[in-house]
C-alpha cells in the first residue's frame, strides 16, 4: 500500500471505524453507569438535586481556592494541558474544516501561531505531568500501565500535529498524525479517557448528593 492509498484509507474507512468505536463506546461508557440508576432517596430533602448537580459540573471546572504546592502543580499543569489540547483541537482551521465537511457547522479559527503556542504549552504540561507521575510517591502508587499508555496516546496527536508544518515530508507526517488521532479515538472508550464524558455524570452525582443535604459541593 503506497502512502496515497494509506492516506485515503485513513481519511475514509479508517476514520469511519475509529469514529464508530469512539462514538459507540463513549456513549456506552456515559450511559451504562447512569442507567444502572440509584435507589430512591427516602430521606426528606433539604435541597434540590438538579441545580446543585449542574452547579458542581461547572464549579469543579474552576480553579480551586485552597491548594498545596503539589496541588497547585497538578491543577495548573492539568489546566494548561486541557486548555491547550482543546484550543488545538477546536480552533485550528484544518480541524474546523473537518467538522464543517462532516456536520456542516463551523466557527472562526485562531491564527496558526496561537494554535502552535497552545499545542507547545499542552505538550510541556503533559511532559511535566509525566515527570510528576513517576516522581510523586502518591501518583506512582496509584498509576498503572494504562496511565502511561494513555499518556503516550494523548501526546502523539499533539506532537505529530505540531510537526506537520515542519516535517520534510508533509504527507508522511499527515499519515502519522491521522493514525495517532484514530488510535486515540479508539482508545478513549476503553480507558480512563472516558472521563471526558463521565466526569459530567460524576460531578452531577457529587453535586446532587451534597445538594440533597443542602451542601454546595
Amino acid at each position: 500500500m503506497n502512502q496515497h492509498a494509506l492516506l485515503f484509507f485513513l481519511r475514509g474507512q479508517g476514520l469511519k471505524f475509529a469514529v464508530i468505536v469512539f462514538t459507540f463506546g463513549l456513549i456506552y461508557r456515559l450511559l451504562h453507569p447512569v442507567l444502572l440508576g440509584r435507589k430512591k432517596n427516602l430521606a426528606a430533602p433539604r435541597g434540590g438535586e438538579w441545580g446543585p448537580g449542574m452547579r458542581t459540573i461547572w464549579h469543579r471546572s474552576l480553579f480551586p481556592v485552597r491548594l498545596t504546592p503539589r496541588g497547585h502543580f497538578i491543577i495548573i499543569a492539568g489546566y494548561i494541558f486541557h486548555l491547550g489540547f482543546l484550543i488545538t483541537l477546536l480552533f485550528l482551521s484544518q480541524h474546523i474544516e473537518l467538522v464543517k465537511n462532516t456536520f456542516g457547522i463551523y466557527w472562526p479559527a485562531l491564527p496558526p501561531g496561537a494554535i502552535s503556542i497552545a499545542a507547545v504549552l499542552s505538550i510541556a504540561a503533559l511532559a511535566a505531568l509525566f515527570v510528576h507521575r513517576i516522581t510523586d510517591p502518591v501518583k506512582r502508587l496509584i498509576s498503572d500501565f494504562q496511565d502511561y499508555l494513555v499518556w503516550v496516546l494523548t501526546l502523539l496527536p499533539l506532537l505529530t500535529g505540531l510537526a506537520l508544518d515542519m516535517a520534510a515530508d508533509y504527507q508522511r507526517m499527515l499519515i502519522v498524525h491521522i493514525i495517532s488521532v484514530e488510535l486515540l479515538l479508539i482508545a478513549i472508550p476503553f480507558t480512563k479517557l472516558a472521563h471526558m464524558l463521565t466526569t459530567f455524570s460524576s460531578r452531577w452525582y457529587n453535586g446532587a448528593i451534597a445538594g440533597y443535604k443542602g451542601v454546595k459541593a
Binding site: 485515503f8 481519511r11 475514509g12 474507512q13 476514520l15 469511519k16 469514529v19 464508530i20 468505536v21 469512539f22 462514538t23 459507540f24 463506546g25 463513549l26 456513549i27 456506552y28 456515559l30 450511559l31 451504562h32 453507569p33 442507567l35 444502572l36 484544518q94 480541524h95 474544516e97 473537518l98 464543517k100 465537511n101 462532516t102 456536520f103 499527515l174
Partner: peptide, 29 residues
C-alpha cells in the same frame, strides 16, 4: 474536499454509532 476532512461521509455513521451505543448501554445496564 480539504485534506484534513474525511473522504467519506461519517455523519450518519456517527449518529448510528451513538444510537447503537445507547441501545447496547440500555441492554447491558
Amino acid at each position: 474536499t480539504p485534506l484534513s476532512a474525511p473522504v467519506v461521509n461519517i455523519e450518519a455513521t456517527t449518529l448510528g454509532a451513538a444510537i447503537a451505543g445507547a441501545g447496547v448501554a440500555v441492554a447491558m445496564s
